[in-house]
Write a protein that binds this DNA or RNA. Structure first.
Ligand SMILES: [Zn+2]
Ligand SMILES: [Zn+2]
Ligand SMILES: [Zn+2]
Ligand SMILES: [Zn+2]
Lengths: 131, 131
DNA sequence: TCTGTTATTGTTATATTATAACAATGTAAT
DNA sequence: ATTACATTGTTATAATATAACAATAACAGA
């Protein structure tokens, strides 16, 4: 099983730190604005950190929102099986950790019997607060 | 059940036509380049058509690729339950139409019992050709 | 320690994707 | 003809992401 990297570089720590402090997904340029006081001045510094953090599964990209959220799913050791619930009203995003769901999707075969080593699922609805 | 719109505007037809002729997802600016001979000269003309075509379910956006593909799934009457298989080697994309899968996901409830009216699922792997 | 190798960083510029804003025209019901 | 609404054309700009290259740091083996 792939492990999450223990030691992060300076910039990776800075970027991860700000994402972990946010309850909600953060956009790259919002992250950039927030880390400028820490010395990260240009987009590539942020995007490189983001790329690495996604790669090692510390954060995930919410593709439909072009935003990044910290992984808080202990069962999600690497970024190959992700599922999220997204409120279309308040944009609240939560990572879904359902072993039933992940088993179902990891074992899914298409008509030609092809299996997949990776998936990303985004559910949309209206959350309790917004109802 | 929501119906697919029958009559499209001129620009919507032009954009849909080029997407339907492509076996693969097309990017917005590639579409723009291809429809310039038809008189669509600026991004908003393409993006407006794309927005409408997505809304009525004639095409879908592949979020992880920022690209658009024609819907060829007759069971997919509207853009609220989509699943795709994506080859990470050749970027081949196919819409998955599995009633089992769509039933499973449409009925999925999270830990708080919340159900969702919409989902988008992207599977990644290596297709037969690329193996 | 020295040295080669790789990861990381800093920096500038640019590419790619998408929308705002507003005037003009077309379409269809009353 | 008048109204309402959708669509179009157009210019400019916002938002997201990467290329390219020089400099520095981290680290393992000789
Ligand atoms: Zn996770
Ligand atoms: Zn909400
Ligand atoms: Zn479809
Ligand atoms: Zn392939």
């Amino acid at each position: 099983m792939a492990q999450k990297k223990e030691y992060l570089s300076k910039n990776q720590k800075i970027v991860l730190d700000i994402i972990e402090k946010s309850a909600q997904p953060m956009k790259a340029y919002s992250i950039l604005f927030n880390v400028q006081k820490k010395g990260l001045k240009a987009p590539p510094q942020v995007y490189r950190a983001l790329d690495k953090l996604v790669e090692i599964g510390k954060i995930h990209k919410i593709e439909s929102r072009n935003a990044f959220i910290a992984c808080r799913n202990s069962a999600c050791t690497i970024t190959n099986a992700t599922a999220f619930s997204i409120c279309e009203s308040c944009e609240d995003v939560k990572e879904i950790s359902s072993s039933k769901l992940s088993k179902y999707l990891s074992n899914f075969q298409d008509k030609e019997g092809m299996k997949y080593n990776k998936y990303n699922l985004e559910f949309f609805g209206i959350c309790k607060k917004c109802k």
